[in-house]
Write a protein that binds this DNA or RNA. Structure first.
Lengths: 111, 111
DNA sequence: CCTTTATATTCCTTGACAAGAATATTCCTT
DNA sequence: AAGGAATATTCTTGTCAAGGAATATAAAGG
């Protein structure tokens, strides 16, 4: 998940992903639409590709980029852990925190 | 969405979020569990707080941090745009790309 | 082949930001 | 009030990555 997040957490790459969500595009189209210089577009696309967020297809001299589904599915799965965040009131937390503390101690793993 | 991504896209902050998904923790607990120095823990927590990912509650000298739900709900909503990625076969893309190209031209906005 | 079109890569510079160390702040206890 | 515990802030330094400019590679057409 982290690698995906890191790849996404850059304004221009984020914009590229948004654009590609509307459908595949060539490098030239991406650069033009987002007003990026071609080399920067290519470089960002490489990062996205390395992170597995997009895939390429060659068509003559053009390279068609499009989103891959898997990373977004993984994202969705990752969100599961955050869908049931409890909103316990804070006055009960003191005791809870002590419990946590105790567990940590007993686990007492690393140095 | 970008600010959230940026806040998350750092290894230690990501770990903090994972830890907090199990329940609220004090700064000390977080630092100990993740083997971070206290100041770095505080600094990361500030970034997460500024991004709206966590909220704080004071209990004596302690600060209890916990996840906020909203950012994750927003995340979920954002994913909607990526849940129905079409897997059109590439041989039909050429024509499609030209269509896109044409639209861009007609929109012909900036400079 | 040579030229043009489309894209990728390399090198360089600069800015942002994370860690470390030291210090400040806050609040409890006695 | 003083000391100690928990957390926050400041300052400095080193690293990394994004952008710019130039160049390289790939493919098509004449």
């Amino acid at each position: 998940m982290l690698p995906t997040l890191i790849a996404l957490a850059e304004p221009n790459r984020y914009r590229i992903i948004e654009l590609l969500s509307k459908g595949p595009r060539t490098v030239g189209q991406i650069a033009e639409r987002l007003e990026l210089r071609q080399p920067q577009a290519s470089k960002h696309l490489r990062v996205l590709s390395d992170a597995g967020l997009v895939e390429v297809h060659r068509l003559a001299q053009q390279r068609i980029y499009r989103l891959r589904k898997e990373p977004f599915q993984a994202f969705d799965a990752w969100l599961e852990s955050y869908r049931n965040l409890k909103e316990e009131s804070y006055d009960r937390l003191e005791a809870y925190l002590q419990t946590v503390q105790a567990k940590e101690k007993s686990h007492a793993s690393k140095k």
